[in-house]
Write a protein that binds this DNA or RNA. Sequence first.
DNA 1: CCCGTTTCTCTCGATGTCAAGAGACTCGAC
DNA 2: GTCGAGTCTCTTGACATCGAGAGAAACGGG
Lengths: 165, 165
Amino acid sequence: MEDEVDRLVAAWRRERPDLDVEPLEVLSRVSRLARHLDRARRLAFAEHQLEPWEFDVLTALRRAGTPYQLSPGQLLTQTLVTSGTMTNRIDRLAKKGLVERLPDPSDRRGVLVRLTDVGRDRADQALAGLLEQERAILAELSRAQRAELAGLLRQLTAPFDNIPG
Amino acid sequence: MEDEVDRLVAAWRRERPDLDVEPLEVLSRVSRLARHLDRARRLAFAEHQLEPWEFDVLTALRRAGTPYQLSPGQLLTQTLVTSGTMTNRIDRLAKKGLVERLPDPSDRRGVLVRLTDVGRDRADQALAGLLEQERAILAELSRAQRAELAGLLRQLTAPFDNIPG
DNA sequence: CCCGTTTCTCTCGATGTCAAGAGACTCGAC
DNA sequence: GTCGAGTCTCTTGACATCGAGAGAAACGGG
């Protein structure tokens, strides 16, 4: 089956026959698939009244384990947004009752963000929904193919995740 | 070599041992790799004084072939942004002298956006730089592995690209 | 022809993000 | 102790995007 990247590559070969555009076969597909996934996730989360960014923050806290609390700084590094953005996000999540701000008992500059019970349940439900949807997308592939794909992708992501920042 | 997704998956298995999180092994890697690629591309384009969105628009015109012109509407569908955004983008590219607006001779409601010579050269140079960088990222894999990866990704993207919109 | 519908592009207001910096507090050297 | 550098969170202003809708022109049935 043909996809958009096949058409993209064909267009480049026509317009720039001097260039080797083979890298696009892999990396343009990665980018485009990621975009499709973003849209699909937005839909899946909407069923739980969550935005993707809310899911990101809530699950970071959820993965931390009890008592489900992290500093805003720790949340920054996990979600890769800036501090101004995180302040805004915590404000909105707190207003919705999904997290609460607590003073950090060991550092009076600091704050701890803790998941409320409601927040934990919402995160758990949204994760279950996400996994269900992702399983449907991956049904195109056999178990062996999925493992193969995961392994090849790991080879590409590992340098980014380990060497720099 | 371990990557962030391995750590992510391990955290979920600890916190939610009841869930099968195998889909994350593939799809979280796709999303994270796409994010790394975005950052890398931003850097590569900066050497040519281009933003990623500028590259998107210029190369859409470039791929169209001579005379390198498309309507704003055609650019919308290729770049997947809204019309308000495209108007803004064309304004800024025109101000930089990379594209120009022409009245559409066959439809007085319409406009044609045409790549200037400067714009075409910038697009060509930026594409060459991008491909060079992408080749470096893909050097982790053998030619056969790249072909395998492209094929598996195509199986996942094809349903999105063909069935819906 | 004429009028309603559709198809274009652009305008406008709201929103989320980033980058830079301010303010509060901690920590270590002296 | 005290001072300066470092750390942490929040504030502010700029900016790109989206979504809804306005205005202009094309299209097509009666």
